[in-house]
Structure formats: C-alpha cells, structure tokens
C-alpha cells in the first residue's frame, strides 16, 4: 500500500537527498500466548529516513508507533520485511550510531546526573579526559551545569528527560530516535523542550525521528511527518512541512502551522472514528 505524499509548500526539490535508514515491508505480529490471542501490531510499513532530516510519526494511541521505533532501533525484530541503517541490515541488536530517548524516566536513580550522562561512554571504555569533555559539553548544552552532582530523584520530570537526552547526545549518535520523549511533561515544558530539540538537531546534524501523539509538536518540529493508521499501524500519508532549518516554537503562530495541524487532524479524526466503529478506543 503506497502512502500518499502531500507537500505543504512550493516544491523546492534539490538533488535527491541521501538515504540514512530504511524499512521495507516491515510487519510485527505478536504470537498468541496461552489465553492471550496474537496481535498484528504493525505494518506492512515502508519508510525512508533522509540524511539529516527531522522526521515525525503521529498516530492514534495503540497504533504501533512505539513498535515501529523498536524495530527500527533493533530493539525488536520484524516478523517480516527488513530494516537497513547506513547500508547495513539491522538484525536483533542496536547498531552503533543509533541513540534512543524513551518516554519513561530512564535516568538511573543510583547515579548522579553527571554519572548518568557519562554512563554509556564509560562502558565503552572511552578515555576519561574525553568523557569529561563530552559530558561537560552536554551538561552545558542541556542547561544542567548546576545539577551535575544532583540525583534524578531531586529533579523535575523535564530535567530528568534532559538528563536522558544528554546521555544519548554524548554518544554522538548519527540517528536519534525519540519515543514520546515529552509525553509525561506539562504543556509549557514541552514547548521549551521542543526548542532544545531543534537546537540539538541543528548542532549535531543527526537524523532525528520523533514518535509523538501531539500534532502541534510534530507540526512545529518536523521536516516531514508520517501519519499512521489505527492498529495494525500503516503509514497513511507523508507530509512535507517546508519549514526553514532555522525555526523555533514561535512558528506556532503562523498560518502555515495551522494548515499543517488541521491537515494532520483531519486524517487522524477519520482514522479514530473508524477505529471506534471497530470497537477500539
């Protein structure tokens, strides 16, 4: 099933952008286990992430967005189809160069903020001076300098999520996957974190894929947005926003922003009504 592609701006087609990660014909079916019946969670999905873009996936809850991310990251294997990252197939483990930020609080409560951020580097045996340099930079970048010695339990939810982002950042990933990273935060904090994320994306040059259920978040942050159907999740539509690279949360007041969100909402509303009719949410 080919997803329709919608361009929300004049075609500024340049040379074909380089492919960074790709999914072809990916499905994920959870086998029946005892009394629980099997679940067809995802797909088939075709997806191509371009080098350096900011890509978002929106969809109704339970549509398999997180499964999509897990499969792309190599955290779970597809039932069918294949996943390729930087030209090499992804099978059963997370390839180097991919970083993931989760919705749940994944900061280790037994480590200080600084040790949390340095955690991955130290396990890799990175030179201590280099660890110090990168952690120092990440602390500064995420505005955590004053909390380096604090423990996660002393921080707010937003600050804890900054710690997790910094922990990913220091590993210098070329592809950053974010699974509803701001889902547990309040609306104002979400906006500010969105700005931070854009800054991080521009500064690192990494490809970013954001999973979210918040349409405004996707509309404001992304170059491209994929809209997923209810379970089993398929990509119904891909939409190019046409935002300039230099952007921040203030674009939310532009007319173009309204056009994007209403377009997204139209597709999702149809889909939710269909899902409800089938006995879903």
């Amino acid at each position: 099933m080919a997803a329709s592609v919608v361009k929300m701006s004049a075609d500024r087609s340049v040379s074909t952008p380089m492919l960074h990660a790709e999914m072809t014909g990916v499905t994920r079916i959870y086998a029946a286990k005892g009394k629980t019946p099997g679940v067809h969670a995802l797909g088939p999905v075709d997806l191509a992430l371009r080098q350096g873009e900011f890509f978002s996936v929106v969809g109704p809850s339970g549509c398999g967005k997180s499964t999509l991310l897990d499969v792309l990251a190599g955290l779970s294997s597809p039932t069918e189809g294949k996943v390729v990252f930087e030209g090499a197939p992804v099978t059963g483990s997370v390839p180097p160069g991919i970083g993931v930020v989760f919705q749940e609080n994944a900061a280790f409560p037994w480590l200080s903020v600084k040790d949390n951020i340095a955690f991955g580097l130290r396990r890799e045996g990175t030179d201590p001076a280099e660890v110090e340099r990168r952690v120092g930079y990440a602390l500064g970048f995420m505005g955590l300098e004053d909390f380096a010695a604090a423990y996660p339990s002393q921080l707010s939810g937003g600050m804890r999520q900054r710690v997790c982002i910094a922990r990913t950042l220091v590993m210098q990933p070329r592809l950053i996957l974010l699974d509803e990273p701001f889902g547990a935060l309040d609306a104002q904090t979400r906006l500010l974190m969105g700005d931070e994320l854009l800054k991080l994306w521009r500064e690192t040059g990494a490809t970013v894929m954001l999973i979210t259920h918040a349409l405004d978040e996707a509309a404001m942050l992304s170059d491209r947005i994929a809209v997923m159907s209810a379970r089993p999740g398929r990509i119904m539509e891909e939409l190019e926003t046409g935002w300039p690279k230099e952007r921040d949360s203030r674009i939310a007041s532009e007319d173009h922003f309204g056009q994007i969100t209403s377009r997204l909402w139209k597709r999702l509303r149809e889909e939710s009504i269909k899902a409800t009719a089938r006995g879903g949410a």
Partner: peptide, 17 residues
C-alpha cells in the same frame, strides 16, 4: 523498569556490564 533494559541494549552493554 523495562526501560532500563532497553537503555542497556541501546548502549550495547555486554551481559556482564
């Protein structure tokens, strides 16, 4: 929390680690 195990896999820790 399962997210700790996921984090460990993303950071590609060995079993001992």
């Amino acid at each position: 929390a399962p997210v700790y195990f996921k984090t460990a896999r993303v950071l590609r820790l060995s079993r001992g680690q």
